[in-house]
Design a protein around this nucleic acid. Structure first.
Lengths: 336, 336
DNA sequence: CTGGAGATCGAAAACGATTTCGACAATGCG
DNA sequence: CGCATTGTCGAAATCGTTTTCGATCTCCAG
């Protein structure tokens, strides 16, 4: 089991083994000058031999050591969290700051556990990544460091939330298809229980209406976020509404499935039917056949923005409210 | 910038604001008994008001607080690291222990930075995830806590490394195909520069040879780890060696591409050509058309094993050497 | 009213570190 | 040789926190 109190190796032990005072040992280990090279070597050797590990102590505050932020994510497969992590790290590359990612599995108990753990380990702020779906109960009151919510809304309007501009993304996709003179645009997307799916579907209908068009098939096709649903829905769609000449899909997996189904049906992409995906999950979208035009969420920028807000809050100028991260259309062969 | 020394809020301030002694404040905040409910509430309110954050101190060692391990990964997209993380967390779910994931981008400087950061934050051990490709320079000497290497070998044979049993995985796949009476088995895989690709290719040839068979096409087809390469290689293969009745692919993306190309060529899967993938990347393999039989790396078990070794080392019984994690064949429709 | 028993709290010691400052020796320089 | 400078080191002060232990208060049975 855990080391008992007596096992803990303290600076005193190191100093004794090296034959120096505690003060000198401290200086040697912390790379301060005022200590001869030979002495330093002796101390370091003793520390290594004893597997000495400093007991943190004031380090965090007194000596202004390396700082860190915690990134808590509900999302299991890392598809969204990882790019956000990369963006956050990029934004911190000039600072001497680290990002620690923890997986909460959408479990409040686990999340609180990690928050305690990370606070005890002196993180200077949190980025909390939701599933873009339901609202997060505000944790800010319980956390003595700045918090930024990403891909979720907080129950407290004074919190800072960064969300994706779903309406804007749908607008980009649909207007792109309209610019290609497509008249019969369908929408296949994820479960209606997802807010993102609902918002994009509503925006899609609204944009079409603004251009005097109707959604092909009459209404959005809600299903799973999977290739399988993409294939299935596309077959249904083409059977009932064969005049469809474009499909806007709720994510790249659905889009990939749609492309496969169209190939099976002998429809050419993009000549007969154009396809637009969503998320720009590179490994999927760029490697599909044909490569997919898709809406990029700018996740790295989201990570960078979150960090910038966190740093601003640490400097005493916190922001609040809901910020929408604009999306970006990546054009590939599926509409080219 | 960072809070200056004078800004730091100490327990003394909290105690003063709450009108109690430092000792009582400490007890209240640490949920010890010996303190009346009303007093505790007053202290907590004061602490919240001042955004008090304890200065760690002895906490980590003295009071046996929550412990943590660091998981450092080179791998960008989280496909391997995340399941390992989940497995590690599962193994720790009974302990009060946390897993902190950091992204090193295969960069030694960044890795060292994170090691320092995490050591200063009192992690009790490290899991270092490589890219399964080249050897890792041993870090164990510089780290005063146990280290387990996963998916890489260390330069120091005394280190503990957990690697995937690539030969065993290839054996599972090929023998499965042979049991289905396939006689013309081809192998499409990733770049020859990847050790995993080379090892599996060699094992594939060896197993075929043991059964008196030859690799269809004469030699393994090395290319990228992409659907695109899977499609391209399959077209080449079927053009030059039309008698192929099974393809063992180096990962699920290649396998998915192969399935697409076979569909385009009018070959039925699995009736005409069976396909086996590798990695069991669920979102890809299970959602492909048809769903892919594939080799599962048991990544969660790897994570659990790594944690168990770490806990054993913390208890004073470290292991060393190279352990091979056996793989598992997941049978789906592409060979059913 | 008396005398415990138990709850509550604070003074002071302990703890594991860092930092200040004075002691001391070696060195340089005239 | 005398004297100042410089480099090294340790005793002691300091820091923020936890823990021990004795003092005080409340409550209630006798």
């Amino acid at each position: 089991m855990g080391r008992r109190r007596s096992d803990a190796i303290t600076l005193r032990d190191v100093a004794r083994l090296a034959g120096v005072s505690i003060a000198t040992a401290s200086k040697a280990i912390n790379n301060r000058d005022e200590v001869a090279a030979a002495t330093r070597a002796r101390v370091l050797r003793a520390a290594a031999e004893l597997s000495f590990r400093p007991n943190v102590l004031a380090q965090g505050l007194v000596a202004g050591r390396t700082r860190a932020i915690g990134l808590l994510t509900d999302e299991l497969d890392g598809r969204f969290a990882i790019p956000i992590l990369l963006g956050a790290e990029n934004a911190l590359s000039h600072q001497e700051m680290s990002v620690l990612l923890c997986d909460t599995r959408g479990d409040a108990i686990r999340r609180n556990h990690y928050i305690r753990t990370l606070l005890a380990r002196q993180v200077d702020g949190f980025i909390i990544v939701g599933d873009s779906n339901d609202v997060h109960l505000s944790l800010t009151a319980d956390i003595p460091v700045p918090v930024v919510y990403v891909y979720c809304r907080s129950t407290n309007p004074a919190d800072l939330c960064l969300v994706s501009d779903d309406e804007g993304g749908a607008l980009l996709a649909v207007e792109h298809l309209i610019a290609l003179r497509r008249k019969h645009i369908a929408h296949i997307t994820g479960p209606q229980s997802w807010r993102a799916a609902r918002d994009r579907a509503a925006a899609t209908c609204a944009v079409l209406h603004d251009h005097g068009l109707m959604l092909a098939g009459g209404q959005p096709l809600h299903g799973e976020w999977s290739q399988h649903w993409g294939r299935h829905a596309t077959r249904l769609l083409m059977a009932t509404t064969p005049e469809v000449d474009a499909i806007f899909c709720g994510n790249d997996q659905i889009a990939s499935g749609a492309a496969q189904a169209l190939a099976d049906l002998g429809r050419r992409v993009p000549d007969d039917v154009a396809i637009v995906g969503y998320d720009n999950w590179e490994i999927f979208a760029a490697d599909s056949k044909p490569p997919l035009t898709t809406v990029d969420l700018n996740l790295q920028q989201v990570g960078e923005t979150a960090v910038r807000h966190l740093l601003a809050a640490l400097d005493g100028t916190p922001a609040s409210g809901v910020f929408r991260q604009p999306c970006r259309l990546v054009i590939r062969e599926s509409t080219a």
